[in-house]
């Protein structure tokens, strides 16, 4: 049972970055801009929030104000991600550049920049930025005692609990509300479906696309931090393809926040099965094969490919995504 609790808890912690980043991608694509730069934005967000946490640790106040520092780190990740994403908005909305190429450029730039900055701050060759352990939310935060042998619920909740998890849940709820119930959501979706129609009723398509991309940058930046926490070994100038993974989650989730949540949990589960395969008794171990430990680790990626093959045809992308809006064209 404790293994099950571990798996659920690990699934959640890995689902959170996917959820945040896929929701971010959804905001951008709903506004009509393909955001393939999610990977790069995650790296930038993770880089600065990790540096911030590291700084808080070194200056000593972090450990005593752990959750405040964590909240600030989330904001740092979000804001730096947002600023970085504005480059994409500038290229693809204002300058009407090809969105895929603009995004790819940002993806190429981000890891290189992260290594340079990591080395500049920590010294030559010091690529890993360590994340302090005090950011974890424990039973102590709620005035409970930490038991030696935690029960099912306790293990599930407190094994991997960080501030990013409740923040992501709040963002999910807010997104469902924003997209479907508010004026902003209606207009954002209109820009992604039929920008000419939006323009003809006086909506500023450029402004909404900027906002869409900016929100995606904010969420992807937070997602970068959430990934780094989930990965556990500090920030190493990479998010291991999670930005692209999140794109798959978004497509599988059909650009719908609730379905994206489901898709994120689904993909995270396969990721976790991959890592926990050794300790799950009923899974075959393929011990005859060399490097059999890597077989299960391929699982999430293979599942992604298979699922996209079957769902991408039925999925319904915002109609105008990827096309720079030009007032003059008929």
């Amino acid at each position: 049972m404790i293994i099950l609790a571990d798996i659920i808890s690990a699934t959640i912690i890995f689902a959170i970055p996917l959820l945040l980043v896929a929701l971010g991608g959804m905001y951008s694509e709903r506004s009509g801009t393909i955001n393939i730069a999610l990977e790069g934005i995650m790296i930038i967000g993770a880089l600065f929030s990790s540096l911030f946490l590291n700084y808080a640790e070194k200056s000593g106040w972090g450990a005593s104000h752990a959750q405040l520092a964590m909240l600030l780190a989330i904001l740092v990740g979000g804001v730096t991600g947002l600023i970085y994403s504005l480059l994409l908005a500038l290229a693809s909305v204002s300058l009407k550049a090809d969105q895929t190429i603009g995004g790819t450029a940002l993806n190429l730039f981000a890891p290189a920049f992260a290594i340079v900055l990591s080395w500049a701050v920590q010294g030559q060759g010091q690529t890993t930025i360590y994340i302090p352990t005090w950011i974890k939310i424990t039973q102590a935060n709620f005035g409970l005692t930490i038991s030696e042998n935690p029960g099912f619920w306790e293990a599930m909740i407190f094994k991997n609990l960080y501030l990013t998890t409740p923040v992501a849940i709040v963002i999910l709820a807010l997104t469902i509300f924003l997209i479907y119930q508010t004026r902003f959501g209606l207009r954002l979706r209109a820009c992604g479906e039929h920008p000419q129609a939006a323009d003809s009723v006086g909506i500023n398509v450029y402004k909404l696309r900027y906002i869409g991309v900016a929100i995606s940058g904010f969420l992807a930046g937070i997602g970068g931090l959430a990934f780094t926490i989930a990965a556990g070994s500090g920030f190493q100038s990479t998010v291991a393809g999670y930005g692209f993974f999140a794109l798959a989650v978004m497509i599988f989730g059909n650009w719908n926040p609730i379905r994206i949540f489901g898709a994120a949990l689904f993909f995270a589960l396969f990721k976790v099965i991959g890592s926990y395969s050794g300790s799950i008794p009923f899974l075959p171990s393929f011990s005859g094969i060399k490097y059999s430990q890597y077989l299960y680790q391929m699982l999430p990626y293979i599942v992604t490919m298979i699922i996209l093959v079957f769902t991408s045809k039925k999925s319904r992308a915002p109609k105008a995504e990827g096309i720079p809006y030009d007032k003059g064209s008929r």
């Binding site: 209606l186 209109a190 039929h194 000419q196 003809s200 009723v201």
Partner: peptide, 16 residues
């Protein structure tokens, strides 16, 4: 100038 996946109502109120 209508958004196909929107309802009639959403298309009418869009912008106002």
């Amino acid at each position: 100038k209508l958004v196909e996946v929107f309802s009639v109502l959403e298309n009418i109120i869009l912008g106002v």
